[in-house]
């Protein structure tokens, strides 16, 4: 088991008023899975993703990553996991402004312990998302779909086990969204674990398993038969 959540509780303390966002979540994710977490806004799906992605610590419960309990990990150890094991793709791309595509993709490598071959790795990652010819473009000179592909290349560059995608198509038109989903599917076929957070069922149906969350609890967790899955094609833009 790659990811194992046991009774995860997350409270937010808002000036003395405590809001419970996750009410004892149990979830297991195997290596190589493609799962979609869906739910309406305010359901706690983003909090769940942030917790799984080590961006936030749970208030209670245990989180086993690759069999290791991460409860007592230091901030630096969590940073290292985020750097080496996890790649993030966000809804709003979050590229550095005034920076080339290549430098954006190289950014995670700055923080890695591996100090060699940064440029080569970044180029390989950009080739994988079909942007090998856009290396020296500034991040504001490319289209939204291309930005999200740069973000995927950035998530890939440290060769992570898991890719978290938080509404990756939310800010994209359908063509660009289709290309992005196609790339995520391809990455999953190559053996990477994909965890997708979305409120859009059409997007979620790309996954092999859909976890539905409502009011901080998992209400449904079902595999998607191959016949019901949606597959996207790359669309040139």
């Amino acid at each position: 088991m790659l990811i194992e959540l046991k009774n995860i509780v997350k409270n937010y303390d808002n000036g003395g008023i405590i809001t419970r966002v996750l009410h004892g979540v149990n979830l297991g994710v195997e290596d190589g899975e493609f799962i979609a977490i869906i739910g309406p806004s305010g359901s706690g799906k983003s909090t769940l993703m942030h917790t799984i992605g080590f961006l936030d610590r749970p208030t209670e419960g245990d989180y086993l990553f690759n069999g290791e309990n991460t409860k007592d990990f230091t901030d630096d150890e969590l940073a290292r996991i985020r750097n080496e094991r996890i790649g993030f793709v966000f809804q709003s791309f979050n590229l550095l402004p005034r920076t080339t595509v290549l430098d954006n993709v190289m950014l995670p490598l700055f923080y890695s312990t591996n100090k060699k071959g940064h440029e080569h790795k970044a180029k390989v990652a950009l080739e994988a998302v079909g942007l090998g010819d856009r290396l020296q473009f500034m991040s504001n000179q490319i289209s939204g779909g291309q930005k999200q592909r740069v973000a995927i290349a950035r998530a890939l560059v440290c060769d992570p086990k898991v890719i978290f995608a938080d509404e990756p198509t939310g800010n994209l038109d359908s063509k660009s969204g289709s290309t992005v989903m196609h790339i995520l599917e391809k990455l999953n076929k190559e053996g990477r674990t994909i965890i997708l957070v979305t409120h859009d069922m059409n997007v979620a149906l790309h996954a092999k398993r859909i976890v539905t969350i409502r009011d901080g609890e998992i209400v449904k967790d079902q595999p998607i038969p191959e016949s019901e899955r949606v597959h996207s094609k790359a669309v040139s833009d």
Partner: peptide, 16 residues
Amino acid sequence: IGEIGLKKALGARNKD
């Protein structure tokens, strides 16, 4: 702040 959050998500440590 957003950029700092992004860098931390990508693995930047506090000292970075």
